[in-house]
Design a binder for these strands. Structure first.
Lengths: 238, 238
DNA sequence: CGAGTGATTGACTGGTGTCAAACCCTGTGG
DNA sequence: CCACAGGGTTTGACACCAGTCAATCACTCG
């Protein structure tokens, strides 16, 4: 497993300036690492966690569970992401987070340690705060994607986002990125039925811009794909 | 116009503990107040604002503008909300915010003042941070609403949320709350065409649980309405 | 080789979008 | 005071996209 603190600092430094002193303070943060079993819930809707985790490896997803049993995925996370940093200042968490397959490893940081560090080190606080704001920005993009775009554009946009974010943290191999989901889960992310997800994927394949199989995205024509999905990465950088 | 600092402190104190000292510090924050013209954009997509605003009165909405010209509303805001606190730590803002009608008044706080106060006063920082996290929680609810619910449930859920949030800040008169939108805008919020919004509203009226006209929601049967919309306010409190 | 899971396709139905017209209300001007 | 214009709402007709049901195919695993 790669070094937790390296990932942590690389991620925060990628959007927020951190002095050597700030970085040292982050390195001093105690944490507990562990691997997640496939499908294991890291946090469940309604819980009041006392730790926040950074994803060190693999992919996890946030989701809502509706009364009907229908699952709605809210966002996907790659190495360096803090999928539940939201819980640092929310009493009760409104969603669950699960590992998508068997490669996920996390580092858990106690809320009290994070809060104490944030209180005495404003640059670190700002970096973590910004991390949660970029999350919010991704949520906004998802509202628009699932509400205002055609099925084809929606799926293309999702592929673009995951590929782009994976590339930024260096987990893209060649022109393929991991998206360890089944087509039914793709549907539960994009707000469409399994059969529609399958047919939409067929349409996307026909364009020659992208493929998706065995839980991986294969980008064949990035320019075309971003065009179909109206993808503009501005919202990710912030 | 009501006193800005009263609204500010009431709102933050409603979810975060603030000592007398914290409250005094907030009262010391300089700000500029002004009214917004109907449809006036408070912030535009792509800008890099140097202030964040708290809404003192009226209603404003965030939205994305798509290349096609289609508008997607992301969230609605009532008195006490900080619709663009997100910009405090985001370089470039990915969405616009506009006044919905002619009653909106705002108080603008300079980013540097907010950051300085947050740096030297952790409880205030936490309160503001939490404010942005509750925002994110509302975004998540919108993803699920627009992706996984029927048109009828979707609209009912929106009405519930606006009514509930309006009630919490004391702007509900009788059993009606302001939602100063046309049906076409309702559609652009819920991801449906104008005609569908109109027909969905007709269905909701038939249930006898709610009415919507002249930019106001009329709640006739709260229990039925929350049932139709699967509304659970947990995500708002946090 | 059979069982099980996920992907794919077909047939059918129902919901949603588009186009278009009629209606309602309000403000304006003759 | 009435005629008219304009914006918003409501309704109808119709096409089409998307959901459901169901069967088949492909692949892996025991």
């Amino acid at each position: 497993m790669p070094d937790i603190h390296d990932i942590l600092i690389a991620k925060l430094a990628s959007h927020s300036p951190l002095s050597a002193e700030d970085q040292a303070a982050l390195k001093g943060l105690p944490h507990r690492s562990r691997e997640l079993a496939p499908d294991e819930d890291l946090i469940r809707q309604g819980e009041m966690p006392r730790v926040s985790v950074m994803l060190a490896e693999g992919e996890v997803a946030r989701y809502h569970m509706l009364p009907s049993g229908r699952r709605q995925y809210l966002s996907l996370h790659v190495a360096g992401d803090w999928p539940d940093l939201q819980s640092l200042f929310l009493r009760r968490i409104d969603h669950s987070i699960c590992a998508l397959n068997d490669g996920a490893a996390i580092a858990a940081f106690q809320h009290e340690h994070l809060r104490a560090l944030a209180a005495r080190n404003p640059p670190v606080a700002h970096a973590l705060w910004r991390e949660t704001l970029i999350d919010a920005s991704i949520f906004r993009a998802a509202i628009t994607n699932n509400s205002a775009r055609s099925a084809k554009a929606r799926m293309a946009h999702l592929f673009c986002e995951i590929f782009y974010r994976s590339k930024r943290v260096g987990v893209v191999r060649g022109e393929t990125a991991a998206l360890p989901m089944h087509q039914s889960q793709l549907g539960e992310t994009l707000g469409m039925a399994l059969v529609t997800a399958n047919r939409t994927l067929r349409e996307l394949r026909r364009t020659g811009s992208v493929d998706f199989k065995d839980g991986r995205i294969f980008v064949l024509d990035w320019t075309m794909l971003t065009g179909i999905g109206e993808f503009d990465p501005d919202y990710l950088n912030a």
